[in-house]
Design a protein around this nucleic acid. Structure first.
Lengths: 216, 216
DNA sequence: ACCTGAACACCGTTCAAGT
DNA sequence: ACCTGAACACCGTTCAAGT
């Protein structure tokens, strides 16, 4: 018998990894709002209830996706120059988060089990400590930097207030509105938002401030 | 006839404001996840479908709540000292967002119609311009500060990665974990997270960096 | 103008039953 | 050990009908 032991409907062998991969596919194809037990199960040719044997409900499923995206971060090797090293970590985080644009919001807004986030945290703290930060100060600086990075990426992921637009025709309209609202000088810059340039500015600004502080 | 013209079920006169207020109540009482057309309508003693005459679906409802919370910001009068003024704006934003703790996440993560956010933006830009920032620089700095404030508050609202806990008994356990993970020095500070102190540090850090930059 | 009955096409999750 | 049928208690939204 050719189909001995094979699941009836041609469903692939179910596993936590397969489910997480399918959830990520649904996220990127249809948006994070479309992710659910039923839609993910459909991708796998399986009944929604089967997923409960491998993940802890919908929340567990979303956590698994966020965890996986964050785990994809490629930690840079520190070179010993504080500014460069902090910058490198920030850009590595951005690269990991935006590797799956629709899923980015999950990494940014879900409370992640500390285990996955531990390696990056440890790396940044080590760099700060070596640059002369006291333990408590290092933690404060880490949290400040992380807040700025997350806030920036949240704006970029479209889940946060933008005060700016990228698409070309909308900018002109937006600029006119702002000009009419007493923001004539700043309107041209407020109307548009180049997310990458904005991220670069914020990261440079913050890392230089950290360096200046620790130099003192 | 006593009940001429009166709605059958004792429902209050329905209006956008009443609906928005009910939604805010549901949010604070049962969490933002519990907010829906049906739960809000139930509060008002009305059918869920009636809400569609006053708000644009569930998304419009949540936008209305976020908008209202942000509108509650009390804009401080600038005193002319850059650090003090920027700090005051940051704390005013925090106060408005956390006035309704459960709803805070809505202000932080929803793309708000610019109209409501315009007044605070204008105020901060004006302060930065008067301190000598060029128009483009002022916009970059505004966005950097806002990112840091939003990232910090998102952590505080429990919707972002925390790397820390507030409740007393959990801290010890957390600290032990972290110590065992090669973070012995920083563990005591990483294990706990005093959100207000953390916000204060980040805001002071950022505003002083802005001041130093513009002094140059 | 405003509200609702009926209806549609969905949800996440439990549990007992199957293999 | 893993999968599912039946079932439960929900969703948001449309539209035609009522007042």
């Amino acid at each position: 018998m050719a189909e001995r032991g094979r699941p009836r409907k041609g469903a692939a062998r179910l596993s936590r990894e397969a489910i997480r991969a399918a959830a990520l596919t649904v996220t990127e194809d249809e948006g994070v709002a479309a992710v659910g037990m039923r839609s993910v199960a459909r991708r796998l040719g399986v009944d929604a209830k089967s997923l409960y044997h491998h993940v802890e409900g919908k929340d567990g499923l979303l956590d698994a996706v966020a965890e996986h995206v964050l785990a994809g971060i490629g930690l840079p090797e520190p070179v010993g120059v504080l500014e460069d090293d902090l910058r490198a970590f920030a850009w590595a985080f951005r690269r990991a988060a935006l590797a799956h644009p629709q899923a980015a919001t999950l990494v940014l807004t879900r409370q992640l089990p500390s285990a996955v986030a531990l390696a990056p945290v440890e790396a940044v703290l080590s760099v700060l400590r070596k640059a002369g930060a006291a333990p408590e100060e290092a933690v404060h600086l880490l949290r400040s930097l992380l807040a700025m990075v997350i806030g920036s990426l949240l704006r970029e992921a479209g889940a946060g207030p933008a005060f700016g637009v990228t698409d070309a025709e909308a900018i002109a309209r937006r600029e006119e509105e702002l000009t009419g609202a007493g923001l004539a000088e700043t309107a041209p810059f407020l109307a548009r938002c180049d997310h990458e340039a904005e991220f670069a500015f914020a990261v440079d600004f913050a890392t230089e401030a950290v360096a200046a502080r620790l130099r003192r």
